[in-house]
Amino acid sequence: MADLYSDHHRWLRAWLYRRLNCPHDAADLAQDTFVRAMGSSALPVIEEPRAFLATVARRLLSNLFRRRALEQAYLEELGRLPEHCMPSAEDVLLVREALAQIDRLLDGLPARARHAFILHRLEGLTQPAIAERLGVSLASVERDLRRAFLHCLSEPSE
């Protein structure tokens, strides 16, 4: 296990650096990758350690990019607010965390079901209102919302 770290740590950092272009992010993500990899049950039988590490790192990378894209979207929205509507710094953090949690929860849900569920839960829109907004039938909205509930409830707690 210590070998995995000492043999491949530098390589992984370089691999991540090429994708992130930031030495600090690369170092952080390399660390996270080893933590995940060492906690993995697949570990004792790794034949291709670098391919395995790259798989783990790739997943962390896509999570990171996803989270950044979400924060960027939120940032753009904040930027459009007039000054008196700006939330406090504490609330910005609170909302940012909540957004990340919701996005993780909805990960993998098809786009229409995702939109319907967000309108339903966050904006409190009724099913007919969602149907109108998305231009689909009421039955489709009901199906989408049911699917979203099932999706969230079947989320394995990691």
């Binding site: 939120y74 909302v95 786009a111 995702r114 967000i118 966050l122």
Partner: peptide, 24 residues
Amino acid sequence: AEQRTPGQLALASRSLRELPTTSR
């Protein structure tokens, strides 16, 4: 957050809906 500064829920909703969907 909405109670302290109205509009936060709608803003959060828009931010989430702007993102493309993915499958893990």
